[in-house]
Amino acid sequence: MHELSLCRSLLRQILEVAEQHRALAVTLVRLRMGPLSGVEAELLKTAFPLAAAGTIAESAELDLTATCVEVYCENCWKNCRAGPNQLCCARCGSCVTQLVSGDELILDSVELTLDQPSALQNP
């Protein structure tokens, strides 16, 4: 269960941004994650409040968007949907493919409560 250590790393990134903008609170954290990211969404949701306790992000909502697994087939020269343990081309069956999406673990954006309207100038 490495979700807690990931949450700590996530929190560091969030708090850094919040500090740059002199935010009073972090209200929403948007993440994008794929089935091959090695992270379980439910565990991440459980771990986040533990990591965020006592910080200005402790009331933040986690908005997780699951991405699909998609591969590029070098035989068909096309992208196609795939499964986490079935990364061959669904069209021609070739296993000479490249993963296009499905392993990402991205902090997309955060919503902040700001002290002053002008605080969102370039940090």
């Binding site: 990931l6 996530l10 990134q13 903008h21 673990l105 919503e111 002290d115 969102l120």
Partner: peptide, 16 residues
């Protein structure tokens, strides 16, 4: 006087 703001980041969580 509080305002909210959305900040786009697109950072990898494994970046550090």
């Amino acid at each position: 006087p509080q305002k909210t703001a959305s900040v786009s980041l697109l950072q990898n969580l494994h970046q550090q």
